[in-house]
Structure formats: structure tokens, C-alpha cells
Design a protein around this nucleic acid. Structure first.
Lengths: 219, 219
DNA sequence: TCGGTTCACATAGCGTCGCTATGTGACATG
DNA sequence: CATGTCACATAGCGACGCTATGTGAACCGA
């Protein structure tokens, strides 16, 4: 436990359990520590997702987590560091649900299309959009945002593109670049959907557009 | 002058002159007012572009514009309102330079490709990226950002797509959606470029990727 | 030309925010 | 059981966004 940094993901939340870096059983005290941290991250998820980063004060966060600001600053050196933990959590959930939704696809291209649509569905929830798309770039800064986004989204997409290419289904010269561009298109698609008068219709329109993009690379 | 709101774009800056809503000659006093406003917007452009919205204080802005904070709040009701004026200015400049760079293209598809590359070149300048891409969504909020982005970018893109489709060069079913997706891909492309170890190489890779996207819709 | 009105800006200060310095008590350790 | 550690709590500082109010110059009708 001694080397457990604030960046490590050791906490329990209703959506699932993640234990990283630590394999041995935790003492009672360490469990309470993890609980406090989890409460802070959960509070961050609710408040950042609901009203955005700027309008959420550190006092709000501490109150929502039923701790004091001192506890918050014991776990996270800055307000933005708590946001980063929330960002990672939400991103991980999003990836998992997308992969789950796309599992069992008949081929690699269909896997991509289904994963994209799952991504779009998630962004029907405005809190996810607020955290991952609206606030993250400015709060984390462009450099850190690019690092995390690469780690959580781009890498997986590159892998999927490469598999589809290996299967002979897609013709992609530069998967690294294409993955970012696709991700950008998807991101903007989510903003369209979230702000559309008819989100359901917008979702279907974006999904069709993305499938058209994929079709453009088909052999 | 009486109905001139803070949203109106009446100022002079080194990059060009914009006079909106007012056609009759200005009095000396009105010119000084426009000068003050221009100084504030110019200061906002420098500071917001250099250090970002959050790290730029209202005092910084007033000092840079060589006025007091009272003057700033006389022209703009909130700090974010000054940012919005800067956003509109930069966006307009970007559109004009992109259209200029693409003028004289042999066909509509080539016009699009050249305009896109001009857009990418502009984002080699980190201040433009910081304002238009990183900070704008969170500062303006998703709703206002979507409105402005539609007004300044999407509409023009939709028009260009429709022209290309009318010329029989592109097969686009839903130009509205495709425009947003393309714009999203471009936006992410600019982030790639700005954070790349070799921006020039990244620029060419993104440009090639975007041309591939367009090729996917070619007949 | 003169009086009053307007208004562009200056000045001072309030409430809130992010963050820090310091205190404290429970628990782990030998 | 004594001692150290550490997970928090408490208090407060400096900076920030914004507002209330003051002021002087420019405009305007008589």
C-alpha cells in the first residue's frame, strides 16, 4: 500500500470493483481509506457530470462525499486530480460496455460499428458527455488529455482497425491517424446527439454516417 | 450606436477591420469606445490563447488592454462574454483564410480538401487550438458552443458538401450529419498535430487521412 | 454658449473559491 | 504499553470574479 499513488485506481463503487496494484488482502483501515476515496470519486462523478467542473466547488465535493475538504486534499493534490480520477473511471466503464455490446459480432468491421454505436448510446447520458468531452480537454490540459485519450480509447481502436485489416476486411494505410480521426468524428457525433432536439433520431443519423465512413474503407 | 450590444463586432484589429450593425460614420467618442473594445478583445486573444481561460484573470486582461476591470465589465457582462467575442473573431479569421486558400480549386472536392488543409495549418498555431478547441466547449457550455460552431463552421461545410453533391462528385445522403462528423475528425486531427513530436509530419498524415475520408464518399 | 444629461470608464470592496498550514485522534507496530 | 504514523478535520490566507458606486468628459437642445 505504501507506494499507492493518487493516480492508482483502488476503490469500490456501485458500478463495479477495481483493484489495481494491490493483490494482498486489505486491512480494515485500508478498506476505509478506499471507501473514502471511492466516495470522493463518486461525488466527483455526480457533481462534475451534473454541473460541470467550474461550477462544482471543492466544498460541494466534500459535502457530497460526506467528508471535509482536508480529506479531499489528502487523497488528491488538486481539484483537477480528482477530476482526472473521475475521467479514468468513466472512460473505463465506457470502454467495457462498448466492448461488451460489440462482443459476438460476425466480423471485425461489424465489431467496430457496434462498438461505435454503443459509444454513441452512452453519450445520450449528458453527464458522460460533460466529463469526457466538454470539460476534460480544458481541465486536464491538451497534453495530458491526449495521453489519457490515447491510453483509453485510441489504442483500442487502433488494435480493432489492425485486426479488421488483417482479416482483409478493411483497407487502412495509417491506422494510428485514422483511429484519431474516427474518434474525433464520433466525439462530435456525441455532441450532436446530446444537443439535438430529437436525440434518438440524431443518434441513428450519426450511426448511419459512421457506418458510411467504415464502408468507405471496405475492400 | 444605441442598440449596439456586447455581442456585436465593432472594432479594429491589426488583422483586419470589421464593422457590423453600424454604417454611418462614427463620432470621435464612438471610435474611442471601439478602440477600447478592440484592445480588450485583442488582450483576450493573446492571454486566452497563451495561457488558457482559467489561468487568465480579469485583472490580467484589463492590464494587458491598459484599462481597468470596470471598463471590461462595462463592455462585457461576464469574463466568458469576452471569451465569446474572442472566439467569434478567431473563428471568422480561420474561415476567411481557409476559403482564401481553397479559392481557385479545379473542382468542389478539391476545394473541400484544400480548405481542410488550411484549417489544419491554422491549428499549428497553439493559441488558435487553445481557444477554439480546448477551452471553447467548457467556457461557452455545450449548447452555446454548438450554436456558434454551427453558425461559423458547420453551415459553410454543409454548403460545400451540397455543392459537391450537386456537381455529382460526392455521394452524400445526409450532409448535415456528415458535416459534423467531418468537422469532428478535423478537430481531433488538429489536436494530434498540436501535440505531436513532429507537427509537420503529423499534419501531412492527417491531411492524407482526411482525403481518404472524402474519397470514401466519392462516386 | 450654457445647463443638464448621458455614459464610458475608474475605484473600492464583497463573497467565494482553491489551496495550505497545522492540529488531532485512532490505529498499527515493536 | 509506548511510540510513531497517517488519515483525516479545522482554520485561515490570498486571489479571483463580479458589483455597487463615484466621476469627469463628451454630447445636446435652447
Amino acid at each position: 500500500m505504501g507506494t499507492l499513488s493518487w493516480r492508482a485506481s483502488l476503490y469500490k463503487i456501485p458500478a463495479g470493483d477495481y483493484t489495481v496494484l494491490v493483490t494482498e488482502p486489505l486491512s480494515l483501515r485500508d478498506e476505509q481509506v478506499a471507501q473514502t476515496r471511492a466516495a470522493l470519486v463518486a461525488a466527483g462523478r455526480r457533481l462534475f457530470g451534473g454541473q460541470g467542473f467550474a461550477k462544482t466547488s471543492v466544498d460541494d465535493l466534500a459535502r457530497e462525499a460526506r467528508v471535509t475538504t482536508g480529506a479531499l486534499y489528502h487523497h488528491f493534490p488538486r481539484k483537477a486530480a480528482l477530476f482526472e480520477a473521475v475521467f479514468e473511471l468513466v472512460h473505463r466503464e465506457l470502454l467495457m460496455s462498448a466492448a461488451e455490446a460489440a462482443a459476438g459480432s460476425p466480423d471485425e468491421v461489424e465489431f467496430l460499428a457496434r462498438a461505435f454505436e454503443a459509444f454513441l448510446d452512452s453519450s445520450l447520458e449528458p453527464d458522460i458527455q460533460r466529463i469526457l468531452i466538454i470539460d476534460a480537454p480544458s481541465v486536464l490540459g491538451p497534453v495530458r488529455f491526449a495521453e489519457l485519450d490515447e491510453q483509453y480509447a485510441s489504442d483500442m481502436l487502433v488494435e480493432a482497425l489492425n485486426e479488421a485489416a488483417a482479416a482483409g476486411l478493411l483497407h487502412v494505410e495509417d491506422p494510428e491517424t485514422v483511429a484519431r480521426l474516427l474518434l474525433g468524428a464520433l466525439t462530435r457525433g456525441t455532441m450532436m446527439i446530446a444537443n439535438a432536439a430529437d436525440p434518438r433520431a440524431a443518434r441513428d443519423a450519426v450511426a448511419a454516417g459512421v457506418r458510411t465512413l467504415l464502408a468507405g474503407w471496405s475492400k
